[in-house]
Simulated scan of single mutants.
Amino acid sequence: MSEIDGKVVAITGASSGLGEATARYLAAKGAKIVLGARREEKLEIIASDINKNGGSAIHLKMDVTNRAEVKALADMAVREFGRLDVFVNNAGLMAIAPLQALKVDEWDRMIDINIKGVLYGIAAALPVFEDQESGHFINISSVAGLKVFSPGGTVYSGTKYAVRAISDGLRHEVGKKIRTTTLEPGAIASELQSGTSHKESVDILNEFYKIAIPAETVAKAIAFAIEQPMDVDINEIALRPTIQDF
């Protein structure tokens, strides 16, 4: 039996890309999936597909910038399945543009989603994990959290460096019984590159993402971290296309 079988996994940003791929992949391995995202119609389709294929999935329309809604996702997992084993802080925004473009609204949005959204996920799941004396956070950073993405990625990289710092601190504080894994993906096929309104940056990203590898690549890395024995904590996984050189 897989270590994933029967585990209750909540995923933010689950309506597409990495979140959707992770939901489908873990469900196929026997996990009970709690899907959260803003686009309810997409969540309904994904949950329906999982359930039709013999898996178990429920969903909730929610926004990671709303703390109460993130808590509601964790609460739904406990209410419907009796526990919560893994919380995947996946929702993210990549709005690439030079600082001189002064896309301040997009800076604010990235901070709200990429940093505060992760913190809200921690705030929602940590009390549950502490009561259970077990649990696993999967926090999605980026290779841009290892090296500043240039040109145009200064603020985005800043948010993803923050995810790594928060994850490291969380691990030090609660790591005796609660696991924390940070993933740093490179170019992965998803909707992430469509997050900016800066035309020149859109063109650069569209060209760059021609090397992207499937979102299921990240799902497999997440599964690897989850399926380790409880006395093994996979701290970080960086993955990118072989051809990607940063």
Rank of each mutant, 00 (worst) to 15 (best):
L84W: 11
A95P: 10
G6C: 05
A219K: 06
I166R: 01
K61L: 04
I243F: 06
L146H: 11
T180A: 06
E236N: 12
I46R: 01
A28H: 02
Q100L: 15
K177R: 14
K177A: 09
V8R: 01
R24V: 13
A124Q: 10
L26V: 04
A221P: 07
I33T: 01
N114T: 07
T65K: 13
D245L: 13
T180D: 03
S201E: 14
T154F: 01
G158Y: 02
M94A: 15
V9D: 06
R109H: 13
S2C: 06
A21T: 11
N51T: 03
K116Y: 08
K160T: 00
G13H: 02
Q100S: 15
A68T: 03
N90Y: 12
K7Q: 11
F129R: 09
K147F: 03
A95W: 08
M110D: 14
S201Y: 11
S141A: 15
G175E: 09
S142T: 04
T154Q: 06
L43V: 11
L239V: 14
G169K: 01
F208H: 13
R109Q: 15
P241V: 13
E44C: 00
P151F: 05
S15V: 08
S2V: 00
D233C: 14
F149H: 12
R24A: 12
I33S: 11
H198E: 15
F149T: 03
A31M: 11
K32W: 02
I46C: 01
L93R: 14
T242K: 12
K29L: 12
L84S: 10
L126G: 03
T65G: 05
A72R: 01
I204G: 04
P185I: 11
V104R: 08
A77H: 00
I226A: 10
Y120K: 09
G6Y: 07
Q228N: 10
E69Y: 00
R240C: 09
A238W: 05
A37V: 04
D85S: 12
H59I: 00
S134N: 12
E227G: 02
K7Y: 02
A165M: 01
G6I: 03
I243R: 10
T154H: 02
V88Q: 07
E216P: 09
K32E: 07
A187Q: 13
K176Q: 15
I113P: 05
F87W: 08
I166C: 04
E236R: 13
N90D: 15
M76V: 01
V64C: 06
L146W: 01
S150I: 11
A101D: 12
R240K: 15
H198P: 14
L239M: 14
K103N: 15
N89S: 11
P229F: 04
S194P: 00
V78S: 02
E44K: 14
G145F: 08
I11P: 03
E236I: 09
L43W: 06
A125C: 09
T159N: 01
I4S: 01
D233V: 02
D112C: 08
N51H: 03
P241G: 09
V64L: 00
D233P: 00
E41T: 09
G55T: 05
S2F: 02
I178Y: 03
I140T: 04
E40M: 12
A144F: 03
V104S: 06
L119Q: 13
M62P: 00
S48I: 03
R171C: 05
